[in-house]
Design a protein around this nucleic acid. Structure first.
Lengths: 141, 141
DNA sequence: CATATTACTTACCTCACGGTAACTGACGTA
DNA sequence: TACGTCAGTTACCGTGAGGTAAGTAATATG
């Protein structure tokens, strides 16, 4: 029983809610919005692309393809379109042949990079602790 | 052409590498490790669980199931096991019947929460800008 | 006329993520 | 004897993320 949701009996209450009333949020559920935003932004390719653009400044498509280690053209395009739509990068098309398209971080994109900087730093200082924890866990079981 | 990798011609060089030499990393490729760590940690359920545990302190399984909004038992167990293995939570089993298992963040887990705090804050202050960018993008195309 | 170049689309296909629901174990209680 | 409780585990199954490879447009060059 207890399938996380949907039990035809009494819902037990007092546990499964986070904002049925008004609380004090400016929006109905800011938490959800923020969570959703983070989920979008914490995507693998987005993170990698963000970092590469942050380090190298303006880059063309093929340069990105080379620097974003392991990305396929399809995913790179998709990621860049997404980031453009979200306002993280500007996409500048130079009407020449062969095509020349340049990508640069916007201020918003750069601020996102800074925000993730602390996570990056955390990972740098703590990945050894994680590895140790994993080994310990493996031996425990 | 240019399928991101594997072209039998000259690899063009000067583009597709990040640490073929020694640089100054203590490990062969610290960047990859860190990226990998972030990817693991930036998982949807991990993030949500982390936040709930950060806000509520010690919780039992069913309490978490109620608070982590939308998680299935399967994913909750999986996430918690993962977090335990990584050293983010402690799992305390009280040998009683019915079972009682309590989860608490470790110091490492709490530090991770703090690191993500800046991202959380960023999302709070910038999600409107993102929405605006999206609307603008939609109208542009 | 064929080829190279850049920045993509598009079609196709696979596999792993994750949801649903049922089952387990050990005991107290009705 | 049947049921409820908690904390899972397991089997099954569908969707969709994402990889691969080929195609496209437009022109300069040999």
């Amino acid at each position: 029983m207890a399938p996380t949701k949907s039990s035809k009996k009494k819902p037990k209450a007092a546990l499964a809610f986070q904002s049925p009333n008004g609380k004090s949020s400016p929006h109905p559920d800011l938490d959800a919005l923020v969570q959703q935003t983070i989920a979008r932004v914490a995507d693998k390719w987005t993170l990698l692309t963000l970092e590469v653009l942050d380090q190298h400044g303006t880059l063309r498509f093929t340069q990105l393809a080379g620097l974003v280690d392991g990305v396929s053209q399809k995913m790179l395009t998709q990621t860049l379109r997404q980031m453009e739509a979200d306002g993280f990068v500007t996409r500048t098309v130079h009407p020449v042949i062969p095509p020349k398209v340049e990508y640069t971080l916007t201020a918003l994109g750069r601020s996102l990079g800074e925000a993730f900087c602390s996570v990056w730093t955390w990972a740098e200082t703590n990945y050894k602790a994680i590895e140790k924890a994993r080994t310990a866990y493996r031996e425990r079981s």
